[in-house]
Amino acid sequence: MPTTPFWRYMFYAGVVAIVIIAVFPFYYAVMTSFETGTAIFKPNILPEMFSWQNYAQVTGQRAFASSILNSVFIASTTVFCALLLAVTASYALARVRFRGRSLLLMTILGVSMFPQIAVLSGLYELVNFLGIYNRPWALVMSYTIFTLPFTVWVLTTFMRELPTEIEEAAIVDGATPWVIITKVFLPLLWPALVTTGLLAFIGAWNEFLFALTFTISEDMRTVPVAIALLSGASVQEIPWGPIMAASVIVTVPLIILVLIFQRKIVAGLTAGGVKG
């Protein structure tokens, strides 16, 4: 922190600016979500009215409620499957020396980075072939493309940091790799699993392209698609009030989760990113 008074003021001004810029758009959305009628079209910084009408309208639509259920089901199933496969895979990648390990790690990272659009037509064909078009399973399957490499990658970094000697003690005690994972490492990895799972959950919850492509009927949509396609009577009339209400509904749980798990999330993001 700066030591001279002038720079200290500048510093705090900067801090205030950062907070306002970060929080204001969401604040504004919340405010708008409580406004109806003409009040909504008056740009104002402080709330002028308070009404639950937009929320009632959004939650009253059956399709929106099922979108939320869809999103919850798809995101949690995806994360669960990804973690299941990732725990053993990341043990192998973090703990066992074998030929081609670095190449494999880079490939996995590559898969998590490559553009979704590049697999879209092939995946579309696969989804149809499996007969799961317009079903939640289509999205569970396609979200695996990015959640699986991501969880493997992050868990590998966490797994690498567990002390070697504990593993060796277990080996001397006669533990097989499977026992080491389930009886020794898993109990130590719970925090990492929560973090990784949460990050993957957010990723799956927010996904848009696959959800847009692989669903057609209103009650099969996920939340992002539902919000994107929420429209009024005509194209010109975008129903800003209900859109903001819907946005707040799907964002508040995420923000609460993120704030609760703040420190863990930072650790998880870092494990996925910085390593040099």
Binding site: V23, P224, L254
Partner: peptide, 9 residues
Amino acid sequence: IPWAIPTIV
């Protein structure tokens, strides 16, 4: 907070 908000939102 901005990071937690879905892109669509």
